[in-house]
């Protein structure tokens, strides 16, 4: 491995700091579900995926689609850190005419593979990408991140059937299981559990990981490469708002504002 665990942990912290800076003070931003993905996104972009920031459309690249598109900030932070576009763009997120929109837009942002944000659709798109790559005999892998609140969308389960029906073993989905949706606990608001049994019943190979443990994420992502004949689901147990103490496990920070004091505190914790 060319990059150390300690270095990846540092990158994840840097990504979180970028998320906080993008949200800033007095503007709404999807803090919780972005921060819960910092380690997963870090491992994908800095270790696992075959990709090239200087050539975002390189044919043999692996693809990542954020089905939970509202967590765009975490992907923007990683793409900027990787050099897909200047880091200065992070300062203009959601500004009128900005490259970085509220939800991922492939037409404006290098490194974004598809337009997501209307929940439940990204996994179907990822299935189509996996099928298209297979027709062309490409070795590229497709990764797709879904949320546990998002599992309430029926289309997720249509996609789950399609992936298994077409034996899309070049597709790995990662469930960001942070247990919170916009208005409260998933288990109390609209329970999408038990997740493991559901995905297994739909014919997927299912593994689980601590979504904040870099070593475990690497092992599980490497491990599923050997699985053939069916799609892979990695259930990542995460904490919404992870890394920003006052926001951890707090549903209000799904899409919340930071006060000047909270902003300072978050930056201080992450530096």
């Amino acid at each position: 491995m060319s990059v150390s665990i300690a270095e990846l942990e540092k990158q994840a912290r840097r990504i979180r700091l970028n998320i906080i800076r993008m949200i800033g003070v007095g503007q709404k931003g999807h803090l919780g579900g972005s921060c819960s993905l910092a380690e997963i996104i870090t491992v994908l972009y800095y270790y696992k995926m075959n990709h090239d920031p200087k050539n975002p459309h390189r044919e043999d690249r692996d693809r990542l689609l954020l089905s939970k598109g509202h967590a765009a900030l975490v992907q923007y932070a990683a793409l900027a850190e990787q050099g897909y576009f200047p880091k200065k763009e992070l300062e203009t997120v959601k500004c009128l005419g900005a490259m970085l929109q509220g939800h991922p837009d492939m037409l404006t942002t290098p490194g974004i593979e598809g337009n997501t944000g209307s929940l439940g659709q990204g996994l179907s798109m990822a299935c189509g990408m996996a099928a298209g790559l297979r027709i062309d005999g490409k070795k590229s892998k497709v990764y797709c991140i879904v949320g546990d609140g998002e599992l309430a969308e029926g289309q997720i389960w249509e996609a789950a059937m399609a992936a298994s029906c077409y034996r899309l073993d070049n597709l790995t989905a990662i469930l960001d299981k942070n247990n919170l949706q916009a208005t409260g606990a998933v288990a109390q608001r609209y329970d999408t559990n038990p997740v493991r049994e559901k995905w297994e019943a739909f014919g997927w190979h299912v593994t689980e990981t601590d979504g904040h443990d870099i070593r475990q994420i690497i092992d599980v992502l490497d491990g599923v490469d050997a699985i053939t004949g069916r799609p892979k689901m990695i259930i990542a147990h995460t904490v919404k708002g992870k890394g920003v103490k006052f926001a951890e496990h707090v549903a209000a920070f799904h899409n919340g504002e930071l006060t000047a004091e909270q902003f300072e505190q978050a930056c201080h914790e992450l530096q």
Binding site: E113, Q121, G122, S124, M125, G128, M129, A131, G132, A159
Partner: peptide, 13 residues
């Protein structure tokens, strides 16, 4: 619904 988004994915390749 799935067919339509799946088609979007195919077009992305």
């Amino acid at each position: 619904a799935n067919m339509t988004s799946f088609a979007a994915g195919l077009s992305l390749t």
